[in-house]
């Protein structure tokens, strides 16, 4: 399975993270998104006329939407991540998958503006991003009251993978995460998952590894 990937893209990271969490290996094809704009070049436009990445290719199947890729990976290798065992949970997962596109359009666009100088109305993008973060915070508070640590259930699903990257990287676009304690706890729960991988801008939880004991002089 081949992923057209950019190291700094949170949407590409969703797919890499999903694969890592379920122990699946992807064939990574790096795309020079910045500064080269390779995603707008003829080869990639032929694969995805929308001119966006990630693109996931598996034989005849070409996917260009990250949520669909998460569904595909989970359905193939780890169906419990689909979170579709009850009608309510299935709907909740879909609710957050759709919501995740608002994160991309607000926090993601703010980040591209602030970091890679892409155009955009930064004040409006931040305002929309804050509205989305408040909605997520309220949702997580309610889940916590129900005794559930993740967005759709007490175990992680593709909904968490879809929402986590743009939320965790909100500060890159100048949107602080300080006001959201429930998001903070959820983010730690996601980062503590077995198999979790980072991307630039999301630091490792060093508390998960013990303090090193080193003989003096050894380095």
């Amino acid at each position: 399975m081949k992923l057209y990937d950019y190291a700094l893209s949170p949407s590409c990271y969703k797919v890499r993270l999903m694969a890592a969490l379920i122990g699946m290996t992807l064939d990574i094809r790096p795309v020079d998104f910045h500064p080269g704009c390779e995603h707008r070049g003829p080869e990639l436009m032929a694969l995805n006329p929308a001119g966006s990445i990630p693109i996931l290719e598996d034989g005849d199947l070409v996917l260009t939407e990250s949520s669909a890729m998460l569904v595909y990976l989970a359905a193939k290798a780890a169906a419990q991540w689909l979170g579709n065992d009850t009608a309510g949970r299935a709907a909740r997962v879909q609710q957050w998958l759709s919501f995740s596109h608002r994160l991309t359009a607000s926090l993601g666009a703010a980040r591209l503006h602030e970091m890679l100088l892409r155009p955009g109305n930064i004040a409006a993008l931040r305002e929309q991003g804050i509205a989305a973060l408040r909605e997520l915070e309220a949702g997580l508070v309610e889940q916590h009251i129900r005794g559930q640590r993740f967005l759709a259930s007490d175990r992680p699903t593709i909904a968490d993978v879809a929402c986590f990257p743009y939320v965790a990287l909100a500060p890159d676009g100048g949107v602080s995460l300080d006001p959201y304690p429930a998001i903070r706890l959820w983010s730690r729960a996601v980062r503590s998952l077995e198999g979790f991988i980072e991307m630039p801008g999301i630091h490792r939880l060093h508390e998960l590894t013990p303090a090193p004991v080193l003989e003096v002089g050894e380095a």
Partner: peptide, 14 residues
């Protein structure tokens, strides 16, 4: 330091 990590009884700077 609020970006740091807790190990045992200490808070470490990231």
């Amino acid at each position: 330091l609020s970006h740091g990590f807790v190990r045992g009884e200490t808070l470490a700077c990231i």
